[in-house]
């Protein structure tokens, strides 16, 4: 039986139209729409149990790459395969189900539903999965307690600080025990101690669930938890560094960058 990498990106590119003057109502279909290339010719493989850090300045293509890996968007050219399945070949409905079953996403701006409590936000994916109410409540409470929010489970997002909202978003991403966790600036709103606790949790997820974790961040200490660090610039992978001491926060010593540099894997 062939063993595929969990994620296999091949020649991945994504361009966006800028709008221009295209209007089919006015009969100007032929007008060429200006485009911007957010990601260009990216090759990357990610294995189960691996934590990938993604660094780069704003506009370097980190968020676009994360969206493509999560199946939120489809590439203009190239492919993203998940466990051997090309995500572009899936229908919109199948990609939605794929995200529910396999992907947990931590958005940079959390994107919690403000009308629901912290626990209801975390349990929401389990509603879609048809899990019993008792299990939903138990699982969501357990994760929120693990995130240090045991006394905030009935609070709504507007009643929580930015850091607390971020931890709720992380708990929501982990509640289905996904195969792939995508996290965009997951520690941006957290103090050092809480940030380390969250990163430790990511490492546990990678180890215990054999899941891959992809973290995009500007914060070097956060990225230090990664097994490999992907540096991006102008929509391309500049280099990939394998970090030793990748146990991250579990080690007392600061992580050391290895001298090994590679393109993809």
């Amino acid at each position: 039986m062939t063993r595929y990498p969990l994620i296999d990106c091949v020649n991945l590119s994504r361009s966006y139209g800028r709008g221009g003057s295209r209007s089919r109502w006015l009969g100007s279909d032929d007008t060429e729409t200006p485009t911007v290339t957010a990601l260009s010719n990216v090759d990357l493989q990610i294995e189960r149990g691996e934590i990938i850090g993604c660094a780069g300045p704003s506009g370097s293509g980190k968020s676009t790459l994360l969206h493509l890996l999560a199946g939120l968007d489809t590439p203009t050219t190239g492919s993203v395969s998940f466990d051997g399945t090309d995500l572009s070949s899936l229908s919109d409905r199948a990609r939605t189900r794929h995200r529910l079953d396999h992907v947990g996403i931590v958005f940079q701006h959390f994107h919690l539903l403000e009308s629901l409590s912290a626990r209801a936000n975390v349990a929401l994916p389990l509603v879609e999965l048809g899990r019993p109410k008792a299990e939903r409540r138990e699982r969501a409470t357990e994760l929120l307690e693990a995130m240090g929010l045991g006394d905030r489970i009935t609070h709504r997002p507007t009643q929580l600080s930015g850091g607390e909202q971020q931890r709720v978003a992380i708990a929501r991403a982990l509640v289905t025990e996904p195969d792939l966790v995508i996290a965009d600036e997951p520690t941006g709103e957290l103090d050092t101690e809480t940030g380390e606790r969250v990163l430790t949790r990511f490492r546990e997820v990678a180890t215990e669930l054999d899941a891959a974790v992809v973290i995009a961040s500007h914060d070097e200490p956060t990225l230090a938890i990664a097994d490999r660090l992907v540096r991006m610039r102008d929509g391309q992978i500049e280099d990939v560094e394998v970090l030793s001491g990748s146990d991250g926060p579990q080690d007392d010593s600061p992580p050391q960058k290895s001298v090994q540099t590679e393109q993809g894997r």
Binding site: A70, L72, D92, R93, T96, R97, H98, R99, L100, D101, V103, I105, F107, H111, L112, L113, L124, P125, E128, R172, T176
Partner: peptide, 11 residues
């Protein structure tokens, strides 16, 4: 957001 976390269009 609901779509992103895997909530189907039907739901």
């Amino acid at each position: 957001t609901l779509a992103a976390i895997g909530v189907s269009r039907r739901t």
